[in-house]
């Protein structure tokens, strides 16, 4: 792996990501729109923002990282690009770092809009959002990377993604408690990332569960990353 290759692929992927404007409609405009709709409701503290941050992180990683890698692979170009670059890991990592940059910008922009028009966001919340989002991005990428192993028809895969996405958002809004909350945290990426953001003010039991989830998913993600296939998988 050469640094000049890594830098070149990072720059080109960043350029590609910023050229796709539609992408920002549902990763940034939708949560901004939703927070304006919900601003009349009980919006007392900065923790109310976490649910929106969770949405931004998961949708951005889902579309910008996971679906991007799958599209690249299924189109055959992942193979060609891997040999142009000399490594498949450079492509995946640069894509991930591009998503980190985009998510940080989205969350910063989102917080600024909330600060200007809805409630006063403390400097601490800005900093906390910035720092926790690094881990959140890697965690959700690791969790969703399991989808790279799926070998099904393209139409079934698209349907599966749609259901997963809608169900995930719907369940995030349900605010469960007890065992259901634990199960959802383990299985629903939106809930997992929300759980990560509320970690400092959670119960000890929930914090232990979160730590296990973080370690488990990062380990799974690392294994997926190491063995990622560059050949088409969907039928």
């Amino acid at each position: 792996m050469k640094f000049e290759n890594d830098l070149a692929i990072f720059k080109v992927q960043l350029k590609i990501a910023f050229k796709d404007k539609f992408y920002f409609v549902y990763t940034l405009i939708v949560p901004i729109f939703m927070i304006f709709i919900n601003k009349t409701q009980d919006f007392q503290d900065n923790e109310s923002l976490y649910i929106y941050w969770s949405y931004i992180v998961v949708t951005t990683v889902f579309n910008g990282f996971l679906l991007n890698i799958i599209r690249l692979r299924e189109s055959g170009f992942f193979k060609t690009l891997t040999y142009l670059m000399g490594s498949k890991y450079s492509i995946v990592l640069s894509n991930l770092f591009v998503q980190v940059v985009i998510i940080q910008l989205e969350i910063l922009l989102f917080n600024l809009i909330v600060f200007l028009f809805i409630i006063k966001v403390s400097l601490m919340t800005f900093i906390y959002g910035f720092l926790a989002t690094f881990l959140a991005t890697f965690l959700v990428s690791a969790m969703l990377s399991g989808a790279l192993l799926i070998r099904i028809r393209k139409s079934t895969f698209n349907l599966f993604c749609g259901i997963f996405f809608i169900l995930g958002i719907a369940l995030l809004g349900s605010r469960p408690s007890g065992v259901i909350e634990y199960v959802q945290t383990v299985l629903n990426p939106f809930q997992l990332i929300y759980g990560l953001y509320i970690f400092p003010c959670s119960t000890v039991g929930f914090q232990i569960l979160m730590m296990l989830c973080v370690c488990g998913y990062l380990l799974i993600g690392a294994m997926m990353f190491k063995n990622i296939s560059i050949k088409q998988k969907l039928k």
Binding site: V12, S75, F77, T80, Y83
Partner: peptide, 17 residues
Amino acid sequence: NWEIAYLAQENGFNVGL
């Protein structure tokens, strides 16, 4: 591997670059 260039048969590289 790093001494090989390989053009795959299909390449759906649909970007605005």
